[in-house]
Every structure is written in structure tokens, then in C-alpha cells.
Design a protein around this nucleic acid. Structure first.
Lengths: 202, 202, 202, 202
DNA sequence: AATGAATGAGAGTTCATTCAT
DNA sequence: AATGAATGAACTCTCATTCAT
């Protein structure tokens, strides 16, 4: 097994990356239902047997995809700035991502539906969801204390509401309508939060 | 072939119903990925060949499930009363459904993910989604005009927001947390709408 | 079993006839390979179960077809006249039949190929072939004695030759060419026999 | 996929050959009607899946058999010598083949009956039949010009006659009688042609 | 590190046949 | 005499996985 050939993690062999990316794309396009190891291998330009050299089983490959997807998604998490800034950045980042990276959300949705039957995925998803909720709730609480958002908002409930809406938008739909719905939702969401637009320092 | 010989719709033979229900449950539990005609037949207490007697192909069976699911979901649509009443009823109905009928939403989510690859499903889903959005938007507009909900709400955007949140909640999640998230979201949603509780007649 | 309801054999119920005819046509068009009891029943305008009421098994139905085909073919057998006349009539009848009743020969060919695996068919075919050969040989012998055909012909060998050629023409082929081949073969055959054209009485 | 990677044709992998041969034998014995991929695979000593590794579909396997059969049959075509010699060789080769290689003719007959429903087979068969007819007609014409055969023979008609007879003999029949009929037919045929036996050089 | 070849265990579908009505 | 409903057995084809090289 070619695990640990490099000291730097991350740089898992290109082959592994290629296979994971290929599987990721296949899942985005055809769902788990349409995921075939042979196709993935072909897309990555190798033999199926080679795929099984890197991923002993299909499940292992899928777990690779989970990691890939979670990593991509976690880039939407805000890291610095005031609560209001972080909130604003987080929301605008997701608004853009939802419109541009349909594939990512298709895969995330597939993973979500699979979670009830796959404890590994369930665990990973939970480890993303919970911190996300806590983060958003914390940001709301701070923003509230700093008077940046409307007083009628409960941090916990508001976080649940926001995340639910984002998840709802992550589901695939008529592409002609999808982008509009994203904008409508985010427009309403931002208006509701009343995030005072950029009232910096002073 | 027992295909629609009755004028009274609905009265499709019990066998058909049983098979559709069995398939529905299988999809709810195992996804399309795990849907096996043999299992469905067994659940319905018949031979696989009998399944194919009623549904010439697996796809036909799936379309049967789509109809079943849509019918069940469409029962959440409000039909009478003032805009505020209808909104309140719709939301409270969905709040309960989301907590009690997990299976229905599991199937709806599976269908949603399948839609991009299945034009028939896509069409049916669109024919549910669009009217739903229009209905909610219309209710919001009426309620707005009657001063029943907060003025900062845009009917179109608000409808998109609400529906997105409900869809987000329809995704499966850790059952221990799910119900809480539903309540949090709906609590916040109702607080946000400011649906004045029952200001009747006058 | 509806056998013997009539005293006159022959007039087996119309249903039986219809079914046999339908099966005959199906075999002619799709071969044994493509023979489906359901299709036959449908062609005859009845339910499959009804077919099995008249013919307990598919094999029984096929035997019905065999009888039908043999009867039709046996009509090409000459019955009266001088040897030369009978020969001439037999050949001209078959020449026409080969061009007009392709279905009959398609079925006969199918039966011939099936014979090695179906003793019943083998028996029936043998009971047609042997008399046919004997008849033609006898006619040739008579014609020979009467000086009506060329002296270089051996009755037995000639009969084998003639029958082989007719069987060869019974195989399906490019329809654009088939008729020409039939005529070429029969022209040559008649020229070879030198059947003096109608040298009656005197 | 092991499809034709070699420049030297012919050297298709042994497995392919084995499978084709097994299918050939099955068809000879049981007809297309009785051709089962599992049996073929078993005869070749491999799993069904292996069969599908070499032949993506049953039809593909059948086409393999067609090629095999045509190749075997085409070996009966004469290649060198005078017209009379070629004719004599061709006829004696076929006479022997008809008695010894019953399987080949069983398969050819099956293919012939299948042709009307399978354009691929129809094409291949036509491409064998037409040249065969032309070849025999050409040989007859030459032999005629050289005075080697009887003057009453028309090249075209004679070719049709000869080929029809050979095809007729290719049909299966009671094995106890079959060989006799072959000999009778060929004896008569050769006597008819009057192929002067071996009048060499001078 | 990579592959061609092979496979077991199923998948959906078909079909002759049966049986209660 | 006729049928709708039901079935067992079988069929072609698929797929993740293995293994010798």
C-alpha cells in the first residue's frame, strides 16, 4: 500500500488525486447510483486493477471523495475579521459557490443522503455540520452584541435557519431558475439580518 | 395489462399500491442505489415476475413511487382560510411532517438528486416546485397587504428563502439533532415573519 | 379437452385453427427462436391462458403447426395423369409455390432444422420425405420407360437430385434474387429432364 | 478490451477461439434456439463473465461464429487448375464435406434461416453466395467452351441448379439416409455434367 | 506501479405455465 | 370457454474484486 511514501502528507500521489477527482466528478454527474469503478479508472487513465491498488475497495475510494469534498467546502469558512465581516464574507462566498460550483454541492448532497447508511460519512458530515452551526451561531451572537444585526434574531435559531436555507439551495434544480433562487434567498437573508453594510472601525 | 382501466383514479389495484409502497420504503431506507426489484417484490409478498406484471420496467415502478410521493407531499398545501391562516397552517403542517415523516422527505430528496438525470422526474418536480413557490409568494403578498407580516419581507425573495430552508431541513441528518434543528428553524422563521397570532374577524 | 366435439374431424374448432395459423405465421416470420406463446395468443385475439386451454404445451402447439404445414405441402403432390404429366405438374406447381408461398417454405425449413432435436417432427418429416422421394423416383422410372425423358437419368439418383435442388430453393434468401434462382433452377432442371413438351395420346 | 490488437489477423487469443468454437458446436447441436451463453462459457471452461469480456454481447459472439463458419466453408472453393479440374475438385470436396462435416452445414443452415432477421448475417451470406454462384457459372462456361461438359447446360442456370442441390443436401436429415442421398445426388450431378474424367495435358 | 484476464454474486427482465374464477 | 393474476426457472448482462505477471 502506497500510503505514506511522502513525509509531507497532502501530496498523496498524483494517481490517488486523479482517481479521487475522477470519482468526484462521476458522483457529481451520475450520483452514487451511477458510480462505476471502471469508469473512474478510465477517466483517470488507468486500469481498474490500478484503482484497486490505490483504493482496496470502492468504499475506500468514496471515503477519499468525502475528504476531497469536505476540504473544498471548508474553504467557505471565514477565518478573520469582525463578526459582521466574517458573516458577510461567509455568506457572499457561499452565494458565489452555490452558483459556480454546482458539482461540489451535488456531491455534498449525495453524501448527505448516503450518510444514514454509512456511519463513516455520517461521522464526517456531523463533524462538519456541528462546527458550522456553532460558528454561525457564535458569529450571530457577536454581531448581535455589537449591534450589527437585527435584535429579533436568536443566534442558535438563526444559525439553524441560515444553514437550512443554504442546504436547501445546495440541492440541484432547474439550472435556469437555480441562480435566481440563490440570489433571492441571499438577498432576503441579508436584508433580514440587517447586516449594516461595512460600518468599520469608527 | 392492468394499466389504468378505471375511471375513478385512485382505485389502482391493491397489488400496485402495495408494490409502490414497498418501493417507496426501500428508496427511503436504501436510496435508489439500494433499490432492488426482488426486494420490493418480496416486501409486497409477491414474486418478481408479478412486479413486472404490474410495472413493465423498474423505471415504471419508480415513476409510480414519484406519483405516490408527490401526492403525499401535496397534502401539505394549504387550501382555505386567510393568507395568514394559510401560511400558519402550511408552516405548522410542514414542521410536523418534517419531524414525523422522515421517509417522505428521504424519498423526495432522492428524487431531487435524480432529477438532473431523469427528465420525467425533473418535470414532475418542477411542476411541484414552481406552484409551491408561487403559492407561498402569493400568501406572503396577501399577508403583507393585510399587515399580518413584517414589512421588510419581499414576497418573492421571502418565498425563495422559506422554501430553501424547508428543503434544507428535508435532508436527513443525525436524528438526535434533526428535530431540534427543525424546531429552531421554524421558531426563527415564524418570529421573523412576525405572523401576528390569530387576529381574526375585525 | 375440446378434442372430438365434432364427428367430422378436420373441423377442429376455429380457435384451434386460428391459433395454429397464428403460430405458423410467427414461425415463418421470426423462427422458432422468436416464437412466443403470448404473441401467438394475441395474434389470435385470445388470452395466453386460452391458448393453453387448447394446446397444453408449446410443443403441442408446434405439433399443430407441423400438421398444418405438412398438409399445405402435400398439396403439391401429383395425383393423376401420365408419369410425364404428373412430373410436369409437380414441378410447375412447386416452381410457383416456391415463389409465392415463401412462408410455407420458411416454416418447413425451420421444422427441418428442428427435426434432429425433436423426434416427433423428425418422424413426420421422414414420413413426408420418403414417400416424396419414392414418388418422384417412380415417376422418373415410368417416364423413362415411356421414353419421355433423357436416358442418362437414373430414377433413384435423379429423384435425390431433384428433391435436393427443391429443398435448396426452399431456403430463404435475398428476395430480389430468389425468384430468379428458382426460375433458373427449374429451367435447367426441365431442360435436363428433356420432358418432351406435351406429346399426348398418339 | 481484447478486440483485434494484432496485425496478423487470425491470431485471436485462444480464449476467443475456444468460445467461438464452443458456440459453433452449440449452434450445430441445439440451434440458435438453444444457444445459451452460460453453456458456451462452460464448454470453453470459463465463467460467463469471461465470455462477456471477449464478446460484449451474445450477438457479437454469434458474429464470431459466422466468421468462423464462413471461413470453414470458403475452403471448399477451388483455386487452381483447369475449369474441369476445378469443378471436379469443388464437387468432390463438397461431397465429402457434406458427409463428414454435418456440423458446419447445420450452422450454415441456421445462419441462412436467421438471415432474414439479421442484416449483418444477410450481408455476409450474400457476399458468399453471389461469388459462389459466379464462380460456378464461370467454371461451367469455361468447361463448356473447352467441351468438357455436356452442351445442354446453361452456365447460369446450371450454377443455380447445382448450388440449389448442394444447399438442399446441407439440410439435416435422417443420418442413416443422408449419406446415401448425398452420393445419389452427386453421382447424378456428375453424370449429368458429363465431366469427361481427367483428359489432361493434350 | 500497473495490467489483462478472470470470476462470483447478483441485477433486471422474460416466458411457458398454472389456477381460481 | 375464457381470463387476469401469479409464479419458478432461466436468461443475458454487469460489476467490484482478485491474481498472475
Amino acid at each position: 500500500m502506497p500510503e505514506e511514501t511522502h513525509t509531507e502528507e497532502e501530496s498523496t500521489s498524483t494517481r490517488r488525486q486523479d482517481l479521487v477527482r475522477a470519482a468526484f466528478n462521476r458522483i457529481a454527474d451520475a450520483g452514487f447510483e451511477g458510480l462505476r469503478t471502471r469508469d473512474v479508472a478510465a477517466d483517470a487513465g488507468v486500469n481498474v486493477a490500478t484503482l484497486h491498488y490505490y483504493f482496496p475497495t470502492k468504499e475506500a475510494l468514496i471515503r477519499g471523495v468525502v475528504g476531497h469534498a469536505m476540504m473544498r467546502f471548508s474553504q467557505s469558512m471565514p477565518r478573520e475579521g469582525s463578526a459582521a465581516e466574517q458573516l458577510r464574507w461567509h455568506l457572499s462566498f457561499l452565494r458565489r459557490l452555490l452558483k459556480e460550483d454546482t458539482q461540489l454541492f451535488a456531491v455534498l448532497a449525495e453524501l448527505t443522503l448516503r450518510a444514514p447508511r454509512d456511519p463513516v460519512i455520517a461521522g464526517i458530515l456531523q463533524n462538519t455540520d456541528e462546527p458550522w452551526h456553532r460558528k454561525v451561531a457564535a458569529l450571530l451572537r457577536s454581531a448581535l452584541e455589537q449591534g450589527c444585526i437585527d435584535a429579533g434574531i436568536d443566534p442558535e435559531d438563526g444559525a439553524a435557519f441560515i444553514i437550512a436555507a443554504i442546504k436547501g439551495l445546495s440541492l440541484p434544480g432547474n439550472p435556469e431558475i437555480h441562480d435566481r433562487r440563490v440570489d433571492q434567498t441571499f438577498d432576503q437573508l441579508e436584508r433580514w439580518l440587517g447586516l449594516a453594510p461595512e460600518r468599520p472601525s469608527m
